[in-house]
Design a binder for these strands. Sequence first.
DNA 1: CACCAGGCAAGTA
DNA 2: TACTTGCATGGT
Length: 223
Amino acid sequence: MNHKLRDSLKSQTGQRLMEMYNRLYERYGPQNWWPAKSPFEVIVGAVLTQNTNWKNVEKAIKNLEENHLLSLDALYDLPAGRLSQLIRPAGYFNIKALRLKNLIEFIVSNYGLELDEFLSEDTGKLREKLLSVKGIGPETADSILLYACSRPIFVVDAYTFRILKRHNMTDDQESYAGLQSIFMDHLPEDVNLYNEFHALIVRVAKEHCKKSPLCQTCPLDGW
DNA sequence: CACCAGGCAAGTA
DNA sequence: TACTTGCATGGT
C-alpha cells in the first residue's frame, strides 16, 4: 500500500473519530473527568475502580479521606490488612489492598515520597514501569498516565471495544494496543481531547445500546 | 432473584 | 497462545 492511500485512510478514520467525538460532546458536554481532588486520588481510584462501579469506589475513597489516609506517605505506612478493611465498599478488597500497596511501594522506591518526581517522569518509561507493577494492567496504567499525569495517552476499556465494534471500526480479536492505536494514530496528541473522548464513550455506552446493535436515541445512530 | 460495574493474575490445555 | 476462573461489594 502506498503512502498516499494509507494517509487517505488514516485521514478518513481520523475524521470519523472526530465526528463521533463532536456528536458526543454536543449531546453531553464536558464530563469533568477524573472526579478527584488530587493526582494521588486519581491513582488510588484507578486501582479501586477495576471491575467496579464508581459509586462504590467513592465510598472507599471517602473512608480513606475521613481517616486522613489519602496521601502517599500515609498509605505507605498503612498495613495492607487495615487498608483492605477501609476499601471494603469497592469490592475485591483483599486483592486491591495488595495492588495498592504494590503500586505505592513502586512509587516510593523509585521516586520517593514526593509525587512530583513520579508525575514528571518520561511518559514511555513511566508506562513501561507501571505495567511491570503487579496489579497494574494497561487500562489502569493508561488511566494514571492520562488522568493523573496529564499525558496524551488514550484509555481503552470494555465500552471502547463495544462502541467501535458497533460501528464496524474494529473486530472481536483486536488487542488493547491495536484499539488504542486506532485513536492515537489518527487523532492529534491532545490531553483534553483524550480525556473527554474516553469519558464520553463511557457515558454513551452506559446510556445506550446495551443489547441491540443499534438504538434510535443514541447520538451515534445513523452510521 | 439474577446480573452488572471505568481489570488483572494465575492456572489450564 | 487462547480460554477460564477467582476476586467481592452494592445497586438495579
